[in-house]
Design a protein around this nucleic acid. Structure first.
Lengths: 192, 192, 192, 192
DNA sequence: AATGAATGAGGATTCATTCAT
DNA sequence: TATGAATGAATCCTCATTCAT
């Protein structure tokens, strides 16, 4: 008789249910029992996988952020020009967001909440390390403005997020043309 | 036919308590009773001023957003160059944020929540109308890139917000020098 | 400067609102504030006319019961035969009920509640005294069965109430013919 | 894949507590927390068994009504004379009421409340079906007056209820003699 | 007389979590 | 592992009532 394994599907179902509900009703109204109902498990089952609510939300954030991070830095090569790096990073980000709107909206909500402060984000920082190093190199080589990388990346990421949000709200459409325009603008902002 | 007059301080105390708590413990953990305790009123008193929790948060958002909006567009003149307009708008925004960190963090949290969708923001749109018109003129006159104003403004506002958040987290300091740098970058992004 | 009088309309409006609400939402859900809202007065105004909720409900019961009682015994004469007395009492009762369904339903609800036990009903007993005396005389003269008047009257009143309730529920129609039939049945029950 | 089993005693304790309290303090004053306290369970436990207060009261009503109905029609046989049927029905009813005064008073209170209208009473109608059929037969065979069964039964049941209520209030005693008298009167009323 | 403001107490219900199986 | 039952604490909100005018 083999040992019993945690059912990976169950933990995944719990994650999915949480992300969905967060987007539907928001942080202030989700509850463990609503999540359990949506995931088709018992409330008690959630505690098989997570210590408590905060633990669950934190792990979900990290999971989502990692997924996003992995896609965001995909295909970034040392051999690329800085302009190509920025473009690739922006296109990667936009693709992830349009493919995973629920994850994105969840990340946005969570990122502004005080729960963020209790999280250990070292692993995520590692994920973005290659991008950071590229930017540092770009600054050293005089291709980028000599500014905190945090801000350089903000000029690349935030317009993408803003365009996506406007897209989801129906205010404008995230066309390839618009994407090209903001890629150009961001580059104008960060280039030396 | 006398009556007791509404104590303007009470409604203000409720707002203040809410903003403080939102920043301390976040959307998911504020409750009407915690707010009441912090504001030194009875829970029931809150319902003299607001229909329910959602109504209260919504009105608080509008109040805060209006306060911010009014400051953000202050001093914007038709006679200004577009570069001056952008700079003024960014400086105004940064000043408001640094002067009212609680309001700012509350606005950030609320803006990402589903509660946003239920709000009527017409009055706020009016506040920003002068800025929008200036941007439209700038586009017509070829000073700005011909792009949705929503995105042009994003390039001005979001870096300011990002810098402020990093400042509050202690990641870097919001110096005049840094502010000048992002003003320059934003202008590079939006100029024609 | 004349002295100020209590506004009789106000107290009447409060009564009306209470009776209506009792029928719409029932004993367990009425509240002073709902009554006030329905009556278009302030909650505090109710306390100008009544000591508290219990006092108000009690006074309303007595008022309604008196109104019903006065109509129920109307036209009862010493000279009438017992059969005529019973018929008149039943017809009077039916007319009151059909004319004042709200009052009737309120009386029914209140009568089964423990609040009844705290009421002083002497004045109402006085109202019904003539009817009781007639029944006593009928028993002495051998026209009625020698039974507690309470029960004799039950055989006259309860079928009327039952028919009315069935009528209000749409189960059957309170026609003159049906009324005649139960008048006949009740008389068969109580006659010696 | 085990679980804790529902404790049948719990749901019964909740019912008992509700019936008791309804009689002591009435519809307008019972609350879920008072019921829970009386039943020695947590308020939250009630919601394990019932969807909400209305659901609980409704189910309790049906339970009580069924219990009464089952006893009321006990021993009614096709072979009986109509007079025997009426007598048996009245005696059955009186016995139930005297044995279960709390249930009876609860039924009386609930029956006059607007909550009644939301109930599905089909199962209860089934219980009384045999009695209804007997009465129909009685009418066809000319033993009973040709009148809506609803009213015929009213003449049998209501005097019993009235006598019981007077008995509980101490106004008169529900002796075998008195019972015999109203059985006679009701028969006089309904016989052809 | 009349009333809007104010409130402590309590309303129904849901919460996150634990227990027993 | 998985879960229905169970619960004390907390939720939002309304209650009956009083106060100040």
């Amino acid at each position: 008789m083999g040992m019993r394994h945690k059912d990976e599907n169950k933990s995944e179902a719990i994650f999915q249910a949480t992300v969905q509900l967060l987007n539907e009703i928001g942080f202030s109204d989700i509850s463990m029992s609503k999540i359990a109902r949506r995931a088709n498990v018992s409330s008690a089952t959630i505690y098989v996988y997570f210590a408590n609510k905060e633990d669950m939300l934190g792990k979900l954030y990290i999971k989502a952020k990692e997924k996003m991070g992995r896609q965001a830095v995909e295909g970034l090569l040392d051999s690329m020009s800085m302009q190509a790096v920025c473009e690739r990073y922006m296109r990667n980000s936009m693709k992830f967001i349009l493919d995973n709107p629920d994850y994105f909206m969840f990340l946005e909500q969570f990122a502004t909440s005080p729960l963020m402060d209790k999280l250990c984000l070292e692993d995520i920082a590692l994920l973005f390390a290659p991008l950071h190093e590229l930017m540092e190199k770009g600054k050293r080589q005089g291709e980028l403005k000599p500014l905190a990388t945090l801000l350089l990346l903000a000029y690349c990421y935030l317009p993408v997020a803003q365009l996506a949000k406007a897209h989801f709200k129906g205010q404008l459409e995230a066309t390839e043309e618009l994407l090209q325009q903001i890629i150009r603008m961001s580059w104008d902002a960060v280039r030396a």
